[in-house]
């Protein structure tokens, strides 16, 4: 009994109920519509459930006499045909009326999101921009305006979903799908791949940060700049390790010769809230663990392990990456 109570007490701590990734805790217009719809439907379902069970108790316990033919016909036609038809028609037309908004074009910012194995390529195109600002594994959006998302995928199907901000949309290799989001409340939320995509599907998440429009503009301006030169002795040595050990084969750090595009852009890595697509905290220790053996953390990841570098060089590398804000 006590164990049962303890389990019950843990329920609110379950990830899905946490506000950052919850449909029930909307922080955007699209999610709010969905949450509202959910509560209306839940309320309606409860009323229907009570009604049906009440009728059941009435005919089996309270009034066991046969109904008149007229009353029975009224009940069957009214409760079985007219009522559900009207109710479902109302729900459908309300639902359909909300759909165009989710596909509405954005009012400025457009973000191209590409699902990779198992991370997210993010390319920001502010209104009028020709070349995108490239980032990864974190979606930042300005509050109060509608931003467009152009979704694609490499190799396998993924699905884009930030429950606190809106519905989900599949990401399909070779074609572009689109949706738009209108976040309202600044804060940190969490997105998750919602279509099984292989070994590390469950480990393919990302931070979604909604910012005040002014703060967002500043952030995007900073994101577009080259990486700052390393500030400490360790970071300088770490930069040399980064450039000597082939990291630039797959990763870009703008402002250095490293211009690989197979893996996530690392120019402002340390400015993100998470490491390895929502799996690890952005700390030096986590960076080191990840670089030494990515597949121990994310099975099947394409990044090979660098444990052959040894502790000392991994420390330097972590010091460098930690400074890429």
């Amino acid at each position: 009994m006590r164990a049962g109570l303890a389990c019950l007490a843990l329920v609110p701590a379950l990830a899905a109920c946490e506000g950052r990734q919850s449909v029930l805790d909307p922080a955007g217009r699209d999610a709010a519509v969905m949450a509202e719809l959910f509560w209306w439907m839940l309320g309606g379902a409860v009323i229907l459930w009570l009604l049906v069970n009440g009728l059941m108790v009435y005919v089996s316990r309270l009034n066991r006499d046969a109904l008149s033919v007229r009353a029975a016909t009224l009940l069957v036609v009214g409760g079985g045909i007219v009522f559900p038809t009207v109710l479902l028609a109302v729900l459908l037309s309300y639902g359909l009326s909300e759909m165009p908004r989710q596909l509405a074009p954005g009012t400025g910012l457009s973000v191209r999101v590409t699902g990779e194995l198992w991370w997210w390529r993010m390319e920001y195109l502010p209104e009028g921009a020709e070349t995108p600002v490239i980032s990864a594994n974190e979606l930042r959006l300005p509050a109060g305006s509608r931003s467009e998302l152009r979704l694609g995928a490499n190799e396998v199907i993924h699905s884009f979903w930030v429950p606190a901000l809106g519905g989900k949309t599949d990401m399909i290799p070779g074609r572009e799908t689109r949706m738009s989001l209108e976040p309202l409340e600044p804060g940190e939320y969490r997105g998750q791949c919602a279509e099984f995509c292989g070994d590390s599907h469950a480990l393919m998440a990302f931070g979604a940060v909604v910012m005040e429009p002014e703060a967002f503009r500043e952030w995007l301006e900073h994101e577009a700049t080259d990486a700052a030169p390393p500030a400490t002795e360790a970071a300088r040595a770490g930069r040399a390790v980064f450039l000597a050990e082939g990291c630039g084969s797959c990763h870009t750090v703008r402002g250095t010769p490293a211009d690989g595009t197979i893996g996530p852009d690392l120019t402002h890595l340390a400015g993100r809230t998470t490491l390895a697509a929502g799996v690890l905290p952005m700390t030096a220790d986590a960076l080191k663990r990840w670089i030494a053996d990515p597949r121990a953390i994310k099975p099947g990841a394409r990044m090979p392990g660098f444990d052959h570098l040894g502790d000392a060089r991994l420390d330097l590398l972590a010091a460098y990456l930690e400074g890429l804000e």
Partner: peptide
């Protein structure tokens, strides 16, 4: 040089040259 991102092949030069920084 990984000049074509669609090729899905890491840039050989980061390890094997030509590379402007000291290599392992």
């Amino acid at each position: 040089y990984a000049a074509d991102p669609a090729a899905d092949v890491p840039a050989c030069r980061a390890c094997h040259g030509p590379w402007p920084e000291p290599r392992n």
